[in-house]
């Protein structure tokens, strides 16, 4: 399976380990990622200013992938939502589609709407499948409690994103469970990381972030796992700036890094040490809780059988 990897603006310069870890993980399942140099920003940052300017870049990005005959893989929720929103609008507003295609025509591009936009979680969950992941596992976490931060723009509005059940999402939890880790039920799971307000209303942005960090720690999470570039930057980079001294903080592990370790990929290749909230102690802890790739319950059943 070959997909165009839409990295957006944050991943290549601020979260390189997100791209490398994801590429390493997906290659284990025969999914190869293609770089399209001409991809631009998804348009998300301009949305407060002008809706049409928000749509245009995503339509062009989809058209670029279509020209290569590829579907798009996204690793950032906001990019994902922008691309899906563009598709949604193009389907509903033929006049806008014609207008945008006229602009694209200047560089010989056409938007057809044939390319699919896939969050990498969908690729792992649907295209690869949990069973396939299980087969490839080299390890499994024996004892690990995680708070997944699902993020907003991957789930809502459901008519646009069409990712998962927006009220009771299960894809991410299933993917966490397959690694042996436990995805905790916690209060901030489906809520906002505060990124959208950062630089516009810093206090509010920090309040939203701190609230999530506190709740995750209260719930007993050892790590926090985002599935979005913005959430990651909030929890990993901004967390250090925003937590008052003496306040406890929580280390952040990307889902691709979490999965990578149980697939037997080296932590250096996964770039875990590049996460600013992670230190060598965390890495040795993570490695120390790796066990054989068999589910606990089955083991117990087997034991029960043998003793009987």
């Amino acid at each position: 399976m070959k997909l165009a990897f839409f990295q957006g603006c944050n991943i290549p310069i601020r979260i390189e380990q997100y791209a490398t870890s994801l590429e390493a993980v997906l290659s284990k399942f025969g999914v190869s990622l293609v770089e399209i140099k001409e991809f631009t920003c998804c348009g998300y940052p301009i949305r407060n200013v002008d809706e049409k300017s928000y749509i245009l870049p995503s339509v062009r990005n989809i058209a670029l992938a279509e020209a290569e005959g590829l579907d798009i893989l996204v690793a950032c929720n906001c990019c994902f939502a922008s691309l899906q929103k563009a598709k949604h609008m193009m389907e509903r507003l033929p006049s806008l589609k014609a207008e945008v295609n006229e602009i694209l025509d200047k560089e010989g591009l056409v938007y057809h709407g044939t390319a699919q936009i896939k969050h990498f979680l969908t690729v792992l969950h649907e295209d690869v499948g949990i069973e396939q992941i299980k087969k490839v596992l080299v390890n499994r976490y024996t004892e690990l409690n995680l708070s997944v931060i699902q993020g907003c723009h991957i789930l809502r509005p459901r008519e646009v994103t069409t990712f998962d059940d927006s009220f009771v999402p299960k894809i991410t939890d299933n993917l966490v469970q397959v690694t042996g880790a436990r995805s905790l039920d916690w209060q901030g799971k489906l809520e906002c990381c505060g990124a959208a307000l950062s630089g516009i209303n810093n206090e509010l942005s920090a309040a939203l972030l701190n609230e999530k960090v506190d709740r995750a720690i209260e719930a007993g999470a050892e790590y926090l796992t985002p599935v979005c570039a913005y959430c990651y930057l909030q929890f990993d980079t901004a967390q250090a700036n925003m937590r008052a001294s003496g306040q406890q903080s929580i280390p952040v592990l990307l889902y691709s890094q979490l999965l990578g370790l149980v697939l037997g990929i080296d932590e250096k290749q996964l770039g875990i040490e590049l996460n600013s909230t992670i230190n060598s102690r965390h890495i040795s802890h993570l490695k120390s809780i790796l066990g054989p790739p068999v589910e606990e319950k089955k083991k117990r059943k087997k034991k029960a059988k043998t003793t009987a």
Partner: peptide, 26 residues
């Protein structure tokens, strides 16, 4: 500058350069 109210401000806030100037402009 009304564009300050966009998410272009996010990476700027994240990098914490010119923090005071940013707030003044806001």
């Amino acid at each position: 500058e009304t564009a300050l109210l966009s998410h272009f401000s996010f990476p700027l806030a994240l990098a914490q350069n010119f923090v005071d100037d940013h707030l003044k402009a806001l």
